[in-house]
Write a protein that binds this DNA or RNA. Structure first.
Lengths: 322, 322
DNA sequence: GTGAAAGCGCTAACAC
DNA sequence: GTGTTAGCGCTTTCAC
């Protein structure tokens, strides 16, 4: 080769393995840099059985949950030389199988399955693959490793924050009862509020936020002074509806959302205080975990709940109180 | 092997190459399926110099533009057995280089560079790589293949639609002058409107939409009956502001947005008519093009403009007129 | 028609 | 210390 050594020596030099004159090692390394030499990962992988590649499978088309997750995964794994295949399957089992097979053919070191809700599974069985699988923000088999956000804790933070601000009558406006996260969040809310708890279920939309306000302010009933919303879209609808009725936010009523979806939360007037699920961190954890499993480390199966975080903007007032 | 043939024969049988008894071929294929045999893509790639893998590089963190693009790319390439590495670089040259090197090591068949505006380049030089590169929704070298949406045509469709509905006085509320697409869209608007053209520049935000309406309705000036907005966020701000002033949309004023960002357009009251850039189609084209280049087909360099499409919802009225 | 042999780019074991 | 050899899983001549 260019440095006047054999391929084997070059390999050892560049990988810092084997014994050889430090001088030789240096010379080879310099030559490699000079030539812009980069080892062929396929050839290397053929031997090592490692591709330094993982697959991220998702059915979240809009990327609402997948993108932050992906950012975390990528950030955690790029240092390890691992690249990520992103595969979006639209709840289509056939498409899912094609993508999984393609990943497997390409010898991915592991797969992260993710979705848009934690109580549904992807339409494909990843139970008995030859590579490790981790579930992030989606359901998986009992003996699997699953990462989810701690919605109960996040809800408690939100409700307690309003209570701490002196709010006396807080209602919960949330999504359809069919979502597990709706129940978890609602239960956490009820636990804190106790007897006066009131939960309104509807769609995950701004329109439902408007309608809920119409219900709450429409009749001859006592008005709440705090509204904890099941997601940011509902919260935005609520805030808009309150403003249209001349109700002050945060003056008369505090509002908190859930998801901390920047595009919605920041555009709300005033900007929305919301619970962030820390999906990026969740992605990091999931990434490091598949990697560990791929390296043969054993990982305890079960559900890992990662804490949420209240992001305080202006719909609650009392920023100073924090 | 299991079917009682050599590896060589098996290879030929499964790839439909070489000559052999049809009966043998069948037998091998059946055995392969039975054993769940899947060829190792790394070994195969080592020989063929093809990895059936491409890289998608982007600096669009929120995925606003990248996700639809990605969907198109993936959809077009999955049939060809190609998987996609998604690499998000945050305008960070060092990170970009790491990702590009990782892709190259993994022998990607090609790279698609994408971004969030067509007049900026990614912070990395992809000019002289060993693999084909195409640019989608981002700028690239003169001798490169670049896919962009035809913003001028999209703008014309929008403005002509309002004109066709009988609107007499249409203004254009758009983003910062520093964006090339702002100029393109504005020029297309001016060309149609002629003498009465009026362009208001501001931020890409709902807040700017509000402020623009305040300017237009604030003074003692004649009111427009049509507003063509530079993006959907501005449009939403405009529609909200008009409603708050008691101006009817689409009764008194027609509004059209740009981007057709579902989450914004659909939540607007009433739902927003908007120009869709067909990013998914753009992704498909870009995907098929890198693939063709990877297969050695020569592709004419230059800019390919793909048509936009007006998505009619309810902020213009005249649905029947279409 | 089928199989044996060579080789893709690399690393690991073993000579020298 | 360094080079030679073998082999990862596959495809591709080329004998038979």
């Amino acid at each position: 080769m260019a440095a006047g050594v054999s391929v084997a020596t070059a390999s050892k030099a560049l990988n810092d393995t084997g014994r050889m004159a430090p001088e030789t090692r240096e010379r080879v390394k310099r030559a490699a840099i000079e030539l812009g030499f980069r080892p062929n990962a396929m050839a290397r992988g053929l031997l090592s059985k490692r591709s330094f590649t993982i697959g991220l499978l998702t059915n979240d088309t809009y990327g609402r949950f997948t993108l932050p997750l992906m950012a975390g995964i990528s950030e955690a794994l790029v240092d390890h030389g691992v690249s990520v295949f992103l595969c979006t399957i639209e709840d289509d089992p056939a498409l899912a199988k094609i993508h999984v097979d393609a990943m497997l053919d390409k010898q991915v070191d592991g797969i992260i399955a993710s979705g848009k809700r934690i109580d549904r599974r992807l339409p494909v069985d990843l139970g008995h693959l030859a590579v490790p699988v981790v579930y992030a923000f989606t359901d998986g088999p009992d003996d699997s490793v699953r990462f989810v956000s701690d919605d109960a804790q996040g809800s408690r933070e939100a409700v307690q924050w309003m209570v701490g601000l002196g709010r006396q009558s807080i209602v919960h406006v949330t999504g359809p009862t069919t979502f597990a996260s709706v129940k978890v969040r609602a239960d956490a809310y009820s636990e804190i509020i106790g007897a006066g708890a009131e939960i309104l279920h509807g769609k995950w939309s701004e329109a439902w936020g408007h309608e809920a306000v119409a219900q709450l302010w429409g009749g001859d009933r006592p008005r709440p002074d705090g509204i904890f919303c099941g997601n940011d879209q509902i919260a935005r609808g609520v805030v808009d509806a309150l403003r249209e009725r001349g109700v002050g936010v945060p003056g008369d009523v505090s509002v908190v959302g859930f998801d901390n979806w920047e595009i919605v939360a920041a555009a709300t007037r005033p900007p929305l205080t919301s619970v962030d699920m820390n999906l990026k961190t969740l992605g990091k954890e999931a990434g490091l975990t598949v990697l560990a499993m791929a390296e043969g480390k054993s990982v305890e199966p079960g559900i890992r709940k990662l804490p949420c975080q209240l992001v305080v903007r202006q719909t609650c007032g009392g920023v100073e109180a924090g």
